[in-house]
Design a protein around this nucleic acid. Sequence first.
RNA 1: GCCGGAGUGGCGGAAUUGGUAGACGCAAGGGACUUAAAAUCCCUCGGAGUUUUCCCACUCCGUGCCGGUUCGAUUCCGGCCUCCGGCACCA
Length: 805
Amino acid sequence: MKSYDFKSIEEKWQKVWNEKKVARVEGKNSSGKFYMLMMFPYPSGKLHVGHGRNYILGDAVYRYLRMRGLKPLNPMGWDSFGLPAENAAIKKGVHPRKWTLENIKEMKSQFSRWGVLYDWDREILTCDPSYYKWNQWFFLKMYEKGLAYKAKANANWCPGCRTVLANEQVVNGVCERCSTPVEGRLLEQWFLRITNYAERLLEGLDKLKQWPERVITLQRNWIGKSEGADIIFEIPHLGKKIEVFTTRPDTLFGATFLALSPDHPLSEEIVEKDKFSELKNLRMKKGDTYEKMGIKAKYTAIHPLTGKEIPIWIANFVLMEYGTGAIMSVPAHDQRDFEFASKYGIEIIEVIHKDGGFNGTCAYDGEGILINSSQFNGMESERAKRAIVEKLERMGRGKKSIRYKLRDWLISRQRYWGTPIPIIYCEKCGIVPEREENLPVLLPMDIEFKGLKGNPLETCEEFVNTLCPNCKGKAKRETDTMDTFVDSSWYFLRFINPKEEKAPFISKDVNEFLPVDLYIGGIEHAILHLLYSRFFTHVLYDLGLVNFQEPFQQLFTQGMICKISSITGKLEKMSKSKGNVVAPDEIISKYGADTERLYTLFIGPPEKDAEWSDQGVTGCFRFLKRVWDFGERISSMERKGEKVRDEKILRKLHQTIKKVTEDYERYHFNTAVASLMEFFNFFEENAKNENRAFLEEVFAIFIKLLYPMAPHICEELNQKISESEMMLLEKAWPCYDPQLAKEEMVVVVIQINGKLRGQVKVPENSPEDYVVELALKEENIKNHLAGKEIKKKIYVKNKILNFVL
RNA sequence: GCCGGAGUGGCGGAAUUGGUAGACGCAAGGGACUUAAAAUCCCUCGGAGUUUUCCCACUCCGUGCCGGUUCGAUUCCGGCCUCCGGCACCA
C-alpha cells in the first residue's frame, strides 16, 4: 500500500491545472454569468496562512460552483502602487518596480502552491502604464465635471510617510500605515468631490441586501447624515451674518451665545487685536484632550426670533470641518455648551421641559415640551422643529438643512510610486489638464532612491518641465501622485477587458458581467476601498459608462487569522510586525496544501476571526491520511461479484450530501468539514464488507463532496478509482435522494413538563396516538406519570411528544 | 458617550424556523502494538449525585447575570455585566 505522498500529488495536479489553464474564461461566458472576485492583494512579499484564508475560501467556492455547472469569471491582479515599495527602494536602493515584480512572482507561486485557481490571462498590474493611464483618464473626466478640484485645506500630514493622507487613512490620530502621529498642515491638494454623492451612497446601501449588516452600518455612520436647519444670526456692528447648523431648531430660544471655531473665517475680525496670540493658542488646542476654552468676541449677534443680543465666543470645541464651523449654543440642552457656559458664566435657559429633564447640573438633550419659547410654548419637540424652521424660512433667517460627516476625498500624495496626476501649471494659463491623447503621463523610471528625502518627482527635471497643452508656453507638471485607493476603485471593471487599449473597458461587456456577483475580502476594507469603489461606480454611471450603480452584489467579509504574539503576548492579527506569522510553506512541506486548506476552512465560521493552532492542523492531516488509506484499500480490492448495497451507509451518505450542499451554499465550510468527518467515521466503521463495487460508488461521491476544500488528494483518488479520466473539477456535484436522506426510523423525544424523560423510535410521520401508546409503555415514563393526571399532550411530528401534567 | 458584534466543556467550535445542548476537531487521561519512540488503533472525557460487583440505567444542576413569555428558551422579550470592533467635542 502506498502511503499518502502529498508532495508529489500536489505538484502533479498543480502542474495539470496550470498547463490546462482550467480557470480561463474566454470572452463571454457560455455557462451562465457569474463573476466572483477576491480582493486583490498588495504585493508586499511573502504571504502567510492568514492571507491564505481569503484565497482558500474563494477557491473552495470557485470549485464548488464549477461542479454546480457554472464557470465563474475569477480573475486576479495586483494592487501594485504604494508606499512599501518606495520605502524598500529608499532602504535598499532597489527600484520600486523591481521590488514589486519580484514580490508578485513570489506570491503568484504561493497561489499555485495553495492550489487556488485564477484566470491568469486577465492578470492586471495597477503600476503598469496601460492601467494607470485610465486612472488619469478618469481624473480628467472628473475634472471636467467639477468632481476633481484643487483646494487649500488643513490636510492630514504624516511625517513618517512624508505625505498627506485621506481622512479615512487616519486611525486614532495616527497614520494607518506607519502609526506616526498625524499633523495638520495647510496645503494645496487635489480632492475628489465624494460629498456630492453622500446621499446616493447612503441610499445605495439600502439596495445592498447581500452585504453584511455591520459593513452597511459602518458606511452609514461614516457618511453620517444629520437633518436639521441652517440658521442665520446677524452681527449688526460688523454688517455681516453668521450661519450655524443645528439638529435641534426646537431649542432655538435657549440659544444664549454663538460659538465659532478658531479656524472660522470671521474669527480674526471679531476678536480684539490684543487677543490674537490667544486665538493662535486656541487653534493649537483643538481635540477632546483639551479642556473647553474660548475667547469672547468684541461683537454680539442678534437672536433671529427674540431680537435679543447674544454674545459670540470663539471656542476650541467647535470644528471648522463640520457644518458651518459655527454653532448656536444651547447650554441647557447640550452638554458641551453647558460645560462652556458654566465655565464662563453665560446665561442658561431651559426651553425643553420633561420630568427628570434639565436640573441645572447637566444638560438634558432629549425631547419634551417647549417652554420659555414664546408662541411655541407647549409644543412637542418634533412639531416645534418644523414650526420654528417654517417661521425662520418665512423670515428669510434660515432653512431646512442636511449635513454629512463625510468629507471630500483627498487624493494627492507627495510620493513617487503612484499614478501622476495629469495636471500642468502654465505660467500664463494657470491650471491646465493634460490632453487625453497625451496620456499616460508616464512615471519616470530612472530615479535614484538611496538616501532620498521628499518626492523624487520634484527633482526630476525632464518630468517637471513641460509645455502648456494650450499655449505651448513654459509649464510645470503636477508632482503629486494619486492615492492608491484610486487604483483599486475600478480594477474590477478592468478584468473584463484587461488588454483594451482604447478605453478603460468596453461598456457593453462590463454591463454584461457586472455587478460582481460575489466579492470576498477582509473587513478592514469596510469603509475605505468599498466606499471609494461605490463612489467611482456611481460616477461612471453618471458618465454613461456603466448601467449599474452598485458594483458588488454580494459581499462576504472573512475574519482574520490571529495568533498569540511573541512581542505583545496577546492574541493579534497575524502579521510580521507582531512576530506571529505562520509560513504556508512550513505547513505545506509538513502536511501538504490540502491539509492547510482543510484546516483553514475548518478553523471556525469564515466571517469570524479565528485563532491559528498548529495542533489543530494535525487533526485535518490525520483525516486526509485516513481518507487516502481508505482509497488505497479500495483500489487494492478485487472486483468480484455483484454490487451489494448497504442501506445504512447509503442513508448516511445521502444525508451527508444534503448537509454538505447546504453548508457550501451558506459558506459554512467549518460544518461541511465536520459533516464529512462524521460521515467518514461512520463509513469506515460500517464498511466491513469487501464489496468493491459498492464501496467505490460511495467513496467516489464522498471525494466529490470533499473536493472543493481539498482538491489535490481528491483528484488523485478520483483518478485511482474512477474509470473515466475526467477531472473532478469538471464533474457534476452529487445530488441526494430525498427518500434516502430521510431517516427510516425517527427518534421522537418524550418530555414531561418540557423535561427530557425518554425517547422512542418510530417510522417517519407516525400519528400521535401511536407515539403516545409507545411512550406510555416506557418504564421511565410510567414512573414519572404514576399517580398524575395528563392535562395536555403536545406532539410535534418526528421531533417531540410532551406530556403536561 | 454613540453605533455594531459577541459571551456555550480544559480549548476551537456545533445546534439552519423556539423542540434531545456540547456534533466535529484539538488537548488530556487510560489501554493495545513496540526493546523504545514516532505513527496507528481502542476506551473515557460539562459538573454533582443515586443505583450497582459490572453492565444497563436514573435524578439534579448547567449555554455571562437577573427576570419574563412558553408545554418547552443557547434561540424570543425586558433589565444588567463583561469583552471585541467602529465612530467620537459631528452641534
